[in-house]
């Protein structure tokens, strides 16, 4: 939930910044509209880019820190863009009893991010959810659209590896399909 220097959100794309200004300008300069503005930004951008705070602050004549204070109070606001593979860890009652928090911790450690954050390459985002409705499978992790039941800390690495292999395979295939395209050198 908190921004921290070790895992700062990836830089905002210029087109997102442009929409940001458009959204904010639609609203009156009333302090009471702070939360509706933030909601509109999130509806458009899927998260609150860091530039939101000073921009909204200037629009309403309040400090950026105050905007951040309000936004961080509500669970609905996120400060990181959703990853290509959103990972949601269930911490509902059954998953809690079955030590879902240890599964979350393992994902946090393996990905090097904290709950609510997104990896720098935008591949993975990590979130906790209340209950996904399959308590018999506790503890549950949802990777993308796939539900993984009976999670174990030892399964975390394999799951991430699977996704990485699938991605590399897709990259190779794409490269093979268009040989003149430049090879993605690093990684």
């Amino acid at each position: 939930m908190l921004l921290n220097p070790s895992a700062a959100p990836p830089p905002t794309e210029p087109e997102v910044l442009e929409t940001l200004g458009g959204i904010v300008a639609r609203f009156d300069r009333r302090r009471a509209l702070l939360v509706p503005i933030l909601q509109a930004v999130q509806a458009q951008c899927a998260y609150l880019p860091p530039e939101t705070m000073p921009l909204v602050g200037r629009h309403l004549g309040i400090a950026a820190s105050e905007v951040y204070g309000v936004a961080s109070f509500y669970n609905q606001f996120r400060f990181f863009p959703p990853g290509r593979h959103p990972i949601r860890i269930c911490l509902g009652t059954a998953c809690h009893v079955k030590a879902g928090d240890i599964i979350l911790e393992n994902f946090e450690r393996k990905l090097g991010i904290q709950e609510g954050q997104t990896t720098a390459d935008r591949e993975f985002s990590l979130e906790r959810v209340a209950c996904v409705g399959c308590c018999a499978l506790a503890p549950v992790a949802i990777v993308g659209e796939t539900v993984h039941g009976h999670m174990q800390p030892s399964k975390v690495e394999g799951l991430l590896l699977q996704i990485q292999i699938a991605r590399e395979k897709a990259q190779r295939e794409a490269a093979a399909a268009s040989p003149q395209a430049e090879d993605p050198s690093d990684d």
Binding site: M1, L2, M53, S65, E66, Y68, G69, S72
Partner: peptide, 18 residues
């Protein structure tokens, strides 16, 4: 204006600057 603010809530509230 305050540079410092409360962020988060409940047990995870912190004072931070922006």
């Amino acid at each position: 204006h305050s540079r410092l603010t409360f962020a988060g809530r409940g047990q995870r509230t912190v004072v931070t600057d922006w």
